[in-house]
């Protein structure tokens, strides 16, 4: 746990340092997008690593947050903060409706249910034109504001997004190391054993799923205000798959891995642009190779590599 607090402190000071002394809006925008994705991936990592469940619909929760915030602020004139809370309520209710029936059962039913849910939500975003603006998107979303302070620059959003991410990460780390988290890890190893200890597994899983969906919704609300425009093309099944990929690349069962996965998969395409049109092919190749050679994810894979190197140097 001590090591986690050091990590948090290091991340917080990096954010503070960059936010105060860095001057490149392009970098801030990239960091902001990474931060939003990392927020979604963090919740998903908790779900996958600690409850052993996969969601193939996190882009839909992300979109639900974005559209609720967007619609309430543009069409009904709500203040952004109130819209954000409303988005949280809606995300939680929807997650409850999906999670309750599918988490009663053993197996990967949540994955399939969220997949179906994701497609349905995407269709709704596209077809409820009066509310959502339809396929061409929802324009004119105001910037985020709290207590009269408006977030207008990329730097302001950098502080906002990464501040929220730090809080969420601290909360997740705390949860993971509480009795709650240990019970969850135990589920991952043996559901029967955990349930014999008196835990209601179905409840535990549902709670994690709700928390995870709410983080995705939160990220979505922030995204809507940051981008000031949303359209259905962002919130597709493929984006859900991308979130899952980020978790796995970072390493399931590692919350820091969530951050690593989000960073690597967001930065990688930027680097791969040197391959021009071939970047997609190279991206696919890298994904496959990583999974074959470092199936436990980057964070654990690298730490293993380091211990291995240290041993070989010392001996």
């Amino acid at each position: 746990m001590k090591y986690h607090y050091c990590g948090l402190l290091a991340l917080a000071s990096t954010v503070l340092f960059l936010g105060l002394f860095h001057h490149n809006d392009y970098h801030f925008n990239v960091f902001n997008i990474v931060g939003l994705q990392a927020l979604v991936v963090l919740g998903l990592a908790l779900l996958m690593g600690y409850a052993g469940q996969v969601s193939l619909g996190h882009a839909a929760f992300y979109g639900l947050g974005a559209y609720t915030s967007g619609i309430l602020t543009t069409k009904f004139g709500w203040p952004p903060l109130a819209a954000l809370w409303a988005a949280q309520v809606i995300t939680l209710i929807t997650a409850l409706l999906i999670g309750l029936p599918s988490l009663r059962l053993k197996g990967h039913y949540l994955a399939m249910a969220t997949l179906g849910f994701g497609v349905i939500v995407h269709v709704l975003f596209k077809e409820m034109i009066g509310l959502t603006g339809g396929p061409s998107g929802l324009v004119g979303i105001p910037p985020f504001s709290i207590l009269g302070y408006q977030f207008l620059t990329s730097r302001a959003y950098f502080f906002l997004i990464w501040g929220v991410f730090l809080l969420a990460l601290a909360l997740c780390l705390h949860l993971a190391h509480s009795p709650f988290g240990r019970a969850l890890l135990a589920i991952h190893d043996s559901e029967a054993a955990t349930s014999s200890l008196g835990y209601n597994i179905s409840h535990l899983k549902l709670e994690v799923f709700l928390f995870s969906a709410s983080l995705a919704g939160l990220a979505g609300s922030l995204y809507a205000h940051f981008a000031m425009f949303i359209s259905p093309t962002t919130f597709t099944f493929l984006y859900s798959v991308k979130f899952v990929t980020m978790v796995v690349i970072g390493g399931v069962a590692s919350l820091w891995g969530a951050l690593a996965g989000a960073i690597v998969l967001s930065i990688l395409p930027e680097i791969l642009t040197v391959f021009e049109d071939y970047d997609v092919v190279v991206f696919g190749l890298i994904l496959v190779l990583t999974m074959i050679f470092v199936p436990q994810g980057l964070v654990r894979g690298l730490s293993k590599l380091f211990t291995h190197l240290r041993r070989s140097v010392l001996s």
């Binding site: 997609v280 991206f283 696919g284 890298i286 994904l287």
Partner: peptide, 12 residues
């Protein structure tokens, strides 16, 4: 995830 990678690769 490997099959996802393969899918991206084949499509590309």
């Amino acid at each position: 995830i490997i099959t996802i990678g393969v899918s991206i690769l084949l499509k590309g």
